[in-house]
Design a protein around this nucleic acid. Sequence first.
DNA 1: TAAAAATACTCCATAGGTATTTTAT
DNA 2: ATAAAATACCTATGGAGTATTTTTA
Lengths: 298, 298
Amino acid sequence: MTPLTLRQLRYFDALARFGHFGNAAAACSVSQPALSVQIKELETTLGAPLLERGARPLRLTPFGITCAERATQILQSVDELADLARAASDRLTGTLRIGVIPTIAPYLLPRLIGLTSQRHTGLDLHVRETITPKLLTELKAGRLDTAVLALPVDEPGLTELPLFDEAFVLVRPNVDANKPVPDREALREMRLLLLEEGHCFRDQALSFCNLRTALPRETLEGSSLSTLVQMVGAGIGVTLIPEMAVAVETRSAEVSIAQFNDPQPRRQVGLVWRQASPLTARFRELGEIVHEAAKSQR
Amino acid sequence: MTPLTLRQLRYFDALARFGHFGNAAAACSVSQPALSVQIKELETTLGAPLLERGARPLRLTPFGITCAERATQILQSVDELADLARAASDRLTGTLRIGVIPTIAPYLLPRLIGLTSQRHTGLDLHVRETITPKLLTELKAGRLDTAVLALPVDEPGLTELPLFDEAFVLVRPNVDANKPVPDREALREMRLLLLEEGHCFRDQALSFCNLRTALPRETLEGSSLSTLVQMVGAGIGVTLIPEMAVAVETRSAEVSIAQFNDPQPRRQVGLVWRQASPLTARFRELGEIVHEAAKSQR
DNA sequence: TAAAAATACTCCATAGGTATTTTAT
DNA sequence: ATAAAATACCTATGGAGTATTTTTA
């Protein structure tokens, strides 16, 4: 009887997540038959069927479901072993999978990558850019090591490290440059351009205006701050961007930047990781570097 | 870079336990070089030394120690996966590693093996006979599935299932057969033969006499109930044995059996397993069978 | 010097890939 | 009819064994 292997668990974990042999195989960087064979092997060693053969869309058996959960856990523990080893070293080495939200990534990454590559030679940085909820899911599943995002996230099992506070500034067409800066009530009367649903920055901008959802007439949305600023340049409306975005985004657009007075809209940027991660000390170091990278951008 | 494998963890776990490449290899049923190579591989993948090379007796690095703990946990989780599969089946199948204390094993096993082999075809019973503390260690380390012993064990993380109560009877030379049965005080004045240190049965017998340790003059000890009964037959003293041992042990010895009156010495026999084990339902079935096997012995 | 671990080298089992067939919608 | 999974077959890698050399107590 062939022994159970981690490879089999890795493949099965992928299969359970993707629900598709081909995609799972691709995610594991192997051919579909290779994965098929290993799954069958696993079923043989366990002595029970993991999935209902001849059923598309693919369905796991009840046993398969619990088995997949266990497998995920086991794989996480194994990956943590590697983390443990890295924690033993005094420098940050190996592969670090870091997630960054879209309203931070473009302004932080160039400097961050520069700094880490000079201070942590041999560190292989894998970056994933997506919205907060997805980052948190990946983080908790152990597919990301850490993430840079807006705090608080307030998820059990995750540790948050606040790095810095940053204000949002108003972006308006150049022609409005000398008008008085609107307060939040005035802002609500203007055509405010927002990021599409899902971005935490959108919610932060809305909450500054004391709104829970966008007003019907403000349905103009962009998928990136860059797009929003371009739209402002075209005279379509106004928008908010975080300070760290100013340098980059105003370089090519004919827009004017203004600080808010009174209660400034702000966000707190921080680093998040699994509480149980052995790399905690390393993440704190990384936090310093992220902070530094962000500072130079403002 | 080669991936981390369960095989490597298995070997390392064994190495950490035995502190000796040769013995660990033997325990894994592989040659010493095979194990050496895998350990080195593991160190390479993890990127940190697990043991202090060139140091005899073998010593793990601090990282090696934590790593060994993790490895053990991981291997246990993996083994539980197999249990999970077996639990999915409605019958008890595969290999079941069962521990039994020495004062139960000889009287229970013949019948137990008979019953299981007829009711659970295909069940491969691995029996380990040793004293309670060792059984508990093996159990908690996941190297045993379940154990039959005297309750209570009262260990966190273990589930106890009481099966039956059983009295201890007095064994005395045939010439004493018509004397009155001694009470516990009288017993203390007689030459009481005991099992050697470590057997729970010894402690139970002593506590019946309200003694914490054996009296100096009673240092006559045997390593099995069988030996004790033979010694009684030779007129050396008296002893106690559990009811289930009577049939077997009095067959060949010229001794007389007597029930105690008043407060009878007793023990409770039960089944113990890891609380987290997915095989709980199966163990309850097994309990029935153990009970039945024991009943027929009395 | 004796016991234990590391190396060297050879062999085989197993995982993977490509090509192809089977199956289910 | 088409997309997806299983099967067939070949190749290559990696783990195991035996023999041997190093190492340290």
